[in-house]
Design a protein around this nucleic acid. Structure first.
Lengths: 197, 197
DNA sequence: GCATAAAACTTGACAATGTAAAGATTATGC
DNA sequence: GCATAATCTTTACATTGTCAAGTTTTATGC
């Protein structure tokens, strides 16, 4: 049993990262504050110096993943912005992210106090989660030359996102079975709904 | 403090029902075996006569809800089977069920060892969850006169379901915001993807 | 530098929970 | 009626979240 160092000098972040590791390995249900503390080699009450309670640590973990997710999406967006295959690539990236880490899907969207998805077409984007600011913008661009009403445009915005999100949800559910794996189908599936306007 | 009856003679079902009540009221996180036992006015270890552990009670609760869901869907299906608006009504029913009980959505689809959704077009439906047997059948009927390949038909089957499921997922997330409520948009949204073949 | 305060961590305690074991009570088959 | 099984209670214990008090390290003012 190695000697403990009193001051970690970055315990807060280590708790978050080890916490996420544990979730990835054994799922959210198996996670406890004390296990995270133990994984960081500190006493069971140490986390309370950095987080008000368990819920706050979990939210910090969510925020951390949320940022990974956000960064990933923004990279994809940077490449395919204003291109005709934007939606396809956006959707593929969105779904693949959760296919690689299925645990993250429920983790992000279940409690999800940190993610705010504002698809209100008339509303600003002050508190909106970054990638969706761009998503909204891109969809509106795609629909710019159509003669739809604002409400109809919003419907399409929701529909397209709902579809992608729904596929991600299916792809991360273990009890949904198909002939082939998702990886083969992904492109075809998204293309189905990728209409020309 | 009223006297306890020793034999409830249907404690098993009462545990399931009270458990679901408690989930509906305060969410899954707030639920404990002991609280359910207390709600049934039995000792905290009584549930162990009927369930191996907490997880088994939860699975029984899931199964119970799953059956409600299934029955509801089958009623709708019975009415709209083979009609052109089948998909629309199926989708509306699917989404509304979870709009009324948002807690059920994650409850059913998170662990979900009891629901088996088999959308494999070549595979039989032995263990498939009942409503999806009919769903598959109906979609295949709709696509009967098209010149699609089997794989393409399966893609559409997944896509249509994924879309409905995705909308349900969005509709039950508290952090998704729109100008109007879902109830107004529902029909329009589903119609977007309800193509004629 | 040094006293003092603040921050980071430990220890010990407590209540709530899941679960197991052993005992009490009721039902059931013969 | 009696043995046995099923159902429930009681007791006990390990795990967990949380708090309070104490300890150790770091920061701050002089």
């Amino acid at each position: 049993m190695e000697k403990r160092i009193y001051h970690h000098k970055d315990l807060k972040n280590e708790l978050i990262e080890k916490g996420i590791e544990l979730v990835s390995e054994s799922g959210l249900n198996q996670l406890s504050l004390r296990k995270v503390a133990q994984a960081c080699n500190v006493s069971h009450a140490a986390p309370y110096s950095h987080f008000k309670n368990k819920e706050e640590l979990f939210e910090a973990m969510q925020l951390f993943i949320t940022e990974q997710f956000s960064n990933m999406l923004e990279e994809v967006i940077a490449v395919y912005k204003d291109q005709p295959n934007f939606l396809l690539e956006f959707g593929k990236a969105y779904i693949r992210f959760f296919m690689e880490k299925p645990q993250y899907f429920t983790f992000l969207f279940q409690h999800g106090k940190n993610i705010l998805i504002n698809l209100d077409i008339r509303d600003g984007n002050e508190k909106n989660y970054k990638p969706f600011v761009i998503y909204k913008e891109q969809i509106l661009n795609m629909l710019a030359h159509s003669d739809m009403s604002l409400d109809q445009k919003e419907d399409w915005m929701i529909a397209l996102f709902g579809y992608i999100h729904g596929l991600a949800s299916l792809a991360t559910m273990e009890n949904v079975h198909y002939t082939m794996g998702w990886e083969n189908k992904l492109e075809d599936l998204i293309s189905i709904f990728t209409v020309d306007f």
